[in-house]
């Protein structure tokens, strides 16, 4: 990734009369672990959907690695190096764990329908290579034992992990994680934090994290962006955000127990 990373420039989206995200500007630098927080309905997932091309912004521009990605289709944006997970897990449920990851190498395939039919030596070489790389990924993330299970039969935690592995297989420079800790118990959350940091260090990528759990966000993010009602109200290091009066107000009005007051 060039020095610019991801840049949102006054991005706005309206659904009918509702402005879900309004003039949000933000930057995620290469290799940075950033967080995106905000009360329910603040527009965090919508921001993800805007970045990944599920929605097109009504106004504003999005740039990645110095090139505009506004209005591209989702697969084109993934090809530029942005991968994501989903808040409500969206694996390929009927495919095996192995195939879920294998399919995600798609962008780097040399084969197409023709090679699938002719099945020449290069095809077999590539298939072997991909099998090896998939196996390796599954091993690192401790999913190799369930590699032949259909993804939908996995326990919840494994499904979350598999979604991350699958996103990694597209070989991104920026990884968007949408509430990866949702539904996890405290011990699992600690594991997850380690995992995220491990990914960032090992694969040298930037991560943008949407998360409700303040402990997770404050614990690992280097920089935090705060949304409320579709607008950005604050940005800074965890310490700065914790002291920010606007943030405290937003969260006290919402859920004092998870609030940033420690």
């Amino acid at each position: 990734m060039s020095a610019t990373g991801l840049q949102l420039n006054k991005v706005t989206i309206r659904f009918g009369g509702l402005t879900a995200v309004s003039e949000v500007s933000a930057t995620v630098r290469p290799g940075e672990l950033a967080g995106l927080i905000g009360p329910n309905g603040a527009g965090k997932t919508t921001v993800f959907n805007l970045i990944t091309g599920v929605y097109s912004p009504t106004e504003g521009a999005i740039e990645f690695a110095g090139r505009a990605i506004t209005g591209l289709r989702p697969f084109e944006i993934t090809a530029r190096g942005i991968a994501r997970t989903f808040q409500n897990i969206r694996l390929f449920g009927s495919l095996t764990v192995f195939d879920n990851v294998r399919v995600a190498f798609h962008l780097h395939l040399r084969q197409g329908p023709g090679q699938s039919l002719s099945r020449g030596p290069t095809f077999h070489h590539e298939e072997r290579e991909l099998t090896e790389r998939t196996r390796e990924l599954l091993e690192i993330f401790k999913l190799d034992r369930v590699r032949d299970e259909p993804a939908r039969s996995l326990p919840y935690g494994d499904q979350r992990r598999l979604e991350i592995v699958r996103a990694l297989a597209t070989q991104p420079e920026l990884l968007l994680l949408d509430e990866p800790a949702a539904g996890m118990n405290p011990a699992e959350k600690v594991e997850l934090m380690k995992l995220i940091q491990f990914i960032q260090e090992r694969y040298k990528l930037a991560i943008l994290l949407v998360e409700h759990d303040m402990k997770v966000v404050m614990g690992i993010c280097q920089r935090i962006h705060v949304l409320e009602y579709g607008r950005k109200i604050a940005e800074g290091t965890p310490a700065q955000v914790r002291e920010n009066p606007a943030v405290i107000a937003a969260y006290l009005g919402y859920d004092p127990e998870n609030g940033p007051t420690k």
Partner: peptide, 11 residues
Amino acid sequence: DDEISAEAMGL
């Protein structure tokens, strides 16, 4: 299985 997720994986 899932078109949105397939697009997100670069398909």
